[in-house]
């Protein structure tokens, strides 16, 4: 019972998760690197801010994002139109919402690699960037895999934030979780089943894969 609209929602969700994960890697890697190595005494504040999306109801996050992105929000001055109810707004929301799921595994991985391999590489003539590429990236690979899968899977299942800032525009902001919600609301359980089942199986396969690859590595530490 999958309709064209459902497929659109499915691919939109995948696209949202991919784009968000990519941005999360770009932001999360340097932040996690810094958090893993800093001796700053106020680090706990940064830790708390990044962990906030884990405990806050997504609607609270969505509410603040709505204020921030809305037509009268501070960010609207920077953009031609409003970011709320747009794909870009959804990406922004997803990035914040899934941030801890990417930063924590990366931070753990960087910490597990430790400082010594870096020091050794430095004494062998490697520049900081060279060290990061030739030592950190390969040694922290399990962490990157975990971070990627968790960030991706968590964005797939996003609902509350989308509901607040995304609305329900087909092809723009109508993601899977919203589509499922709509089907249930209109008592169309068969379609809801198909979509929910697809999401369940997809998420399970990804998590099973990452746990299988990283047998020695704890995937989530909360």
């Amino acid at each position: 019972m999958i309709t064209a609209a459902d497929l659109t929602a499915f691919f939109l969700t995948i696209r949202l998760a991919l784009v968000s994960t990519l941005i999360l890697f770009l932001i999360g890697t340097p932040v996690a690197w810094w958090l893993a190595r800093t001796r700053w005494s106020m680090k706990f504040i940064a830790d708390a801010v990044i962990a906030l999306p884990l405990v806050l109801p997504p609607t609270v996050l969505g509410f603040y994002l709505l204020l921030l992105l809305g037509a009268n929000g501070p960010l609207s001055a920077l953009t031609s139109g409003t970011l709320a109810f747009s794909f870009t707004g959804l990406v922004l929301g997803s990035v914040i919402y899934s941030m801890p799921f990417v930063i924590q595994p990366l931070q753990d991985a960087f910490r597990a690699v430790g400082n010594r391999p870096h020091e050794v590489a430095a004494t062998l003539g490697a520049t900081p960037l060279d060290r990061f590429i030739s030592i950190t990236l390969p040694m922290a690979r399990p962490g990157f895999l975990t971070a990627g899968v968790l960030g991706f899977a968590h964005t797939l299942g996003e609902f509350g934030v989308v509901l607040m800032i995304g609305g329900n525009i087909p092809g723009e902001t109508r993601v899977l979780s919203i589509a499922i919600y709509d089907h249930v609301e209109s008592l169309n359980y068969a379609s809801a089943h198909w979509l929910a089942g697809a999401l369940l199986v997809l998420s399970f396969i990804m998590l099973a894969a990452v746990y299988a690859v990283n047998r020695q590595f704890r995937v989530m530490k909360l």
Partner: peptide, 20 residues
């Protein structure tokens, strides 16, 4: 002068080989 420009070799207490 940062470490990588000093051209010093360091042998640490623990071998610290690159495991990858």
């Amino acid at each position: 002068i940062p470490v990588h420009k000093r051209n010093v070799g360091v042998v640490f207490q623990v071998p610290s080989l690159f495991s990858h």
